[in-house]
Amino acid sequence: MTYSGKMIAGGKAVLPAELRREFGLRDGDRIIFERHGEGILVKSYDQVLREVQSNLKALIKHPFTVDEFLAERRAEADGE
């Protein structure tokens, strides 16, 4: 679906209300602009955060818990 917005004074972009509601955007929320070919991709800050978390999670080869981490540190301290 295609939407139309408007550029207003100061370089501010107005997103259509339907899109703001659909994506849960409220006044003051941060949005991210990315170059996408010859266009602009607009994402919510929360969406970008979820993407980064997902990418980082994929890099973890052996997930561990806080309890495992603390047990390792205790074992290291006992060995010193």
Rank of each mutant, 00 (worst) to 15 (best):
H36I: 10
D29H: 04
G28F: 01
D46Q: 15
R50Q: 05
E51V: 01
A71W: 06
L25M: 08
D29Q: 07
E38P: 05
G79H: 02
R50L: 13
A13G: 13
R20Y: 05
G10T: 09
K43V: 13
V14H: 03
G28I: 07
E34S: 13
E22H: 02
D27M: 12
E51S: 09
I32T: 15
G79A: 08
M7Y: 02
A77L: 05
D29V: 02
K6S: 07
R73I: 09
A17M: 14
E38C: 11
G24S: 01
V42R: 10
F23S: 00
G5V: 09
I40A: 08
G79S: 06
R50W: 14
V14G: 04
K43Y: 02
A71Q: 03
D67R: 15
V48S: 01
A9Q: 04
L15A: 09
F69V: 06
K12M: 13
R21T: 11
G79K: 03
L15H: 06
E80R: 00
R35V: 10
R21F: 01
L49G: 07
R21L: 04
E34A: 12
L56D: 00
I31V: 02
E72Y: 11
G10V: 05
D29K: 06
G39E: 06
E80I: 00
V66L: 08
E22Q: 10
E34T: 14
R20F: 07
E76V: 01
E38N: 05
G24R: 00
S54T: 12
R74Q: 15
S44R: 00
E68R: 03
F33E: 13
R20S: 07
H62L: 15
L19I: 09
L19G: 04
I32P: 03
S54E: 01
E22I: 06
A9E: 03
I32H: 12
S44E: 01
S4P: 02
A58H: 07
V14P: 11
R30H: 10
F23W: 05
A9V: 03
E76W: 04
D27I: 06
T2G: 05
R26W: 06
H36N: 15
A9I: 04
K57H: 14
I8V: 11
G11I: 01
A17E: 08
V66D: 04
A13D: 08
K57Y: 14
G79I: 00
A17C: 13
K12V: 09
R50G: 13
L41D: 02
A58W: 03
L19P: 06
V66S: 07
I60M: 12
A58D: 10
E38R: 10
G28M: 03
F33C: 12
V42F: 13
E34N: 11
F69R: 09
V14I: 09
R30W: 01
